[in-house]
Amino acid sequence: MKALRVLIVDDSKITVKRLSDMVKNAGHNVVSTATSGMLALTEYEKCKPDIVTMDITMPDMDGLETTKKLIEYDPNTLVVMMTSHSQEQMVLDAIEAGAKGYLLKPFDAGRLKVVLEETYEKYGEKNA
């Protein structure tokens, strides 16, 4: 498994920090972080990451809308939705928006590594 270039999007700075540490410990690289949907769009364009972790609940532009915009910009965008919602409808909305993975808070470092790598292997390389 190559080291993935990860963009972390979350409006909570604490979560960004926690996720960054987990991603690094999993042997991958955090190429950038964004604390809003708008910033996520510009950071994506700048860094062209392999995969994006996206918080679903953010003020202004939420994770669903940001994901749709990213996919509009680059149909191969890989998004793993990071959320505190376990309701079925929210899960379906995320998948409908184009997310290819779904992780719930609190994040477990082991699960995060597995989901990032599995999502990339399944949807990333062959689309690249």
Binding site: H85, S86, Q87, E88, M90, V91, L92, A94, I95, E96, G101, Y102, L103, L104
Partner: peptide, 8 residues
Amino acid sequence: AEAHAILA
């Protein structure tokens, strides 16, 4: 929820 996601 993760099972729902995989199914979807």
